[in-house]
Amino acid sequence: MLKKIVTIFILITALLGFAVVSASDVSSNKMILEWKTSKIWLNNGELCIMGDFTNRRSDLTVTKLNSFIVKIMFNKSDGSKYEFIGSPAKIPLCKVLPNESKRVSFNLGEFTGEWSSWITEQDYTFTYLRNSHW
């Protein structure tokens, strides 16, 4: 009898775990997860970028950042412009709770260049879960 109860408990737990995992969705909707670049700098010849992801929804939890591609338009002090497109070799863990923000830094790899100002555009995909209300 005890074996049967333990087996049923394990089965129910596994089914609930599967339901939670299978309920996740992947999106690139910036109305759900918004990125704002706050800083770009060079560190030992590598271009780094920092910014904040803001979860704009109250009913979703962002669980993972799947991809991140950034286009940076650099303006030089002489008035010329150039563009850099890159993505990080490693994507850090990025869980963002409903209506909250998370600061993230990316290393975009080797870079030689100078700039006086910049503007960024980015494309990213992320995984999210709808929050359960018991």
Results as ranks from 00 to 15, higher is better:
Phe53Ile: 09
Ser77Lys: 11
Ser101Leu: 06
Ser80Trp: 02
Trp118Leu: 06
Pro92Ser: 06
Phe68Arg: 04
Glu83Gly: 03
Ser58Trp: 07
Phe84Arg: 08
Arg103Met: 11
Arg57Ala: 12
Leu93Lys: 07
Gly86Met: 00
Asn66Val: 07
Arg57Tyr: 08
Leu65Ala: 01
Ile119Thr: 15
Phe74Lys: 00
Cys94Tyr: 00
Arg56Val: 03
Gly79Cys: 04
Gly113Glu: 13
Trp115Arg: 03
Gly86Val: 01
Arg56Phe: 05
Ile85Asn: 12
Phe111Tyr: 15
Lys64Leu: 01
Gly109Ser: 01
Pro88Ser: 02
Glu100Trp: 05
Tyr82Thr: 00
Asp59Met: 10
Leu93Trp: 04
Leu60Asp: 15
Asp78His: 08
Cys94Glu: 06
Leu60Ala: 15
Phe53Asn: 10
Gly113Val: 11
Asp78Glu: 08
Lys71Gly: 11
Arg57Ser: 12
Val104Leu: 10
Leu65Thr: 04
Gly109Asn: 02
Asn55Ala: 06
Ser77Pro: 09
Ile119Trp: 12
Gly113Cys: 09
Asn66His: 03
Asn75Met: 13
Val70Asp: 12
Glu114Asp: 13
Ser77Arg: 11
Asp59Gln: 11
Lys64Val: 05
Phe53Thr: 10
Ile72Phe: 09
Phe111Gln: 12
Ala89Gly: 12
Lys64Ala: 12
Ser80Glu: 07
Pro98Ile: 10
Val62Trp: 04
Ile69Glu: 12
Phe106Cys: 05
Ile85Asp: 03
Ile91Pro: 12
Lys90Ser: 08
Lys81Met: 06
Phe106His: 02
Ile69Phe: 13
Leu93Asn: 08
Ile85Arg: 13
Gly109Leu: 03
Leu65Cys: 02
Ser117Phe: 01
Glu83Pro: 03
Arg56Gly: 11
Ser101Ile: 14
Arg103His: 03
Leu97Asn: 14
Phe84Ala: 02
Asn99Arg: 08
Leu93Met: 10
Ser116Phe: 11
Thr112Ile: 14
Arg57Phe: 02
Phe74Glu: 02
Lys95Gly: 08
Cys94Arg: 00
Asn66Gln: 08
Ser58His: 12
Phe106Ile: 04
Thr112Met: 05
Lys102Ala: 07
Met73Lys: 14
Gly79Leu: 07
Phe84Cys: 02
Leu108Met: 09
Thr61Gln: 15
Met73Glu: 13
Ser101Trp: 02
Thr120Gln: 04
Arg103Val: 13
Cys94His: 03
Gly113Arg: 14
Leu97Ser: 15
Ser80Gly: 02
Lys71Phe: 01
Lys102Met: 14
Ser80Phe: 01
Ile91Ala: 09
Ile85Met: 13
Ile72Asp: 11
Phe74Asn: 01
Ile72Ser: 07
Phe84Asp: 00
Pro92Gly: 10
Thr61Leu: 14
Thr112Cys: 08
Leu108Pro: 07
Ile72Gln: 10
Pro88Tyr: 00
Thr54Val: 10
Gly113Ser: 09
Ile85Val: 11
Thr112Phe: 10
Ser101Arg: 07
Glu83Arg: 12
Val104Gln: 09
Ser58Glu: 15
Ser101Gly: 08
Glu110Asp: 06
Val62Asn: 13
Thr54Met: 07
Ser77Val: 09
Pro88Trp: 00
Glu100Leu: 11
Ser67Gly: 00
Trp118Ser: 01
Pro88Ile: 04
Ala89Asp: 15
